[in-house]
Simulated scan of single mutants.
Amino acid sequence: MFTKQFLVIASIIVSLLMVVIVNLVRLRNTKKPAVAKKIILPPLFMATGASMFILPMFRPTLPELISSVVMGMLFSIVLIKTSKFEIRDNQIYLQRSKLFIVALIGLVALRMIGKIILAETIHIDPAQMSGIFFILAFSMILPWRISMYIGFRKLKRQLDNACRPT
């Protein structure tokens, strides 16, 4: 139906669109007070994509699974370091970070390069590659969002303690 090359190029285009969308959402979120629900929900919504693994063609091998999880967790460190909260006007806001967009572009570029290398050298099936990169992305987003939630709760406790009458 579609050539392998077409699928790789299409996935790169989708990745670039996601960078733009994530950056726009991030900029909008720095202007509004943060809420726990918006921190927690993205990984839950993304988890529904794991239903692809019902079909055997999307399942990675054990070494591919382990390397995807490890790479995702390593990549999450960059997102964690560029995502901090601050208290402004007695509310919690996500800090603006110019480094975040640089980090995001860098991570997407690494994913694209990895996808191209895997497609050209190892000859992994496009469906299986989709599974591998889904696992990588989920393994990157989950620790990042957990870290954000922990940071948010810490500042929320500070705010609650400061606002309590003595």
Rank of each mutant, 00 (worst) to 15 (best):
M71V: 11
F75P: 02
A47P: 00
F75H: 03
T61Y: 07
M46D: 03
F75M: 11
V78D: 04
V69W: 10
S67P: 03
E64V: 04
L62N: 08
L65I: 12
L62C: 03
T61W: 07
P60E: 12
F75G: 00
F53G: 02
M52L: 15
S76K: 00
I54V: 11
R59S: 08
V70T: 05
L65P: 06
M73I: 11
F75E: 02
M57K: 13
L65C: 11
E64W: 10
M57P: 01
V70P: 06
A47I: 09
P63N: 01
R59N: 14
S67D: 06
L55F: 09
P56E: 04
A50E: 08
V78N: 10
P60G: 13
L55E: 09
E64P: 05
G72S: 05
V78T: 10
M73T: 11
S67Y: 14
G72T: 07
E64A: 13
E64C: 09
I66W: 07
G49P: 06
R59C: 07
F53A: 03
S51Y: 15
R59W: 00
M73P: 07
T61C: 01
A47Q: 01
E64G: 14
M46S: 10
V78F: 13
P60K: 12
M73H: 03
S68W: 05
T61H: 05
L74E: 05
S51Q: 14
M46E: 08
M46Y: 11
S68A: 15
V69I: 15
E64L: 14
S51K: 15
V70Y: 01
P63L: 03
M52I: 15
V78P: 02
M71D: 04
L65N: 10
F58V: 09
S67W: 13
S51N: 13
L74S: 03
P56Y: 00
P56S: 13
L55G: 00
F53R: 01
R59I: 12
S67K: 09
L55M: 11
S51D: 07
P63I: 08
V70G: 06
P60R: 11
V69H: 08
S76Y: 02
F58C: 07
P60F: 14
P56R: 08
L55V: 01
R59M: 13
G49H: 05
V78S: 10
M46F: 13
F53Q: 03
L74A: 14
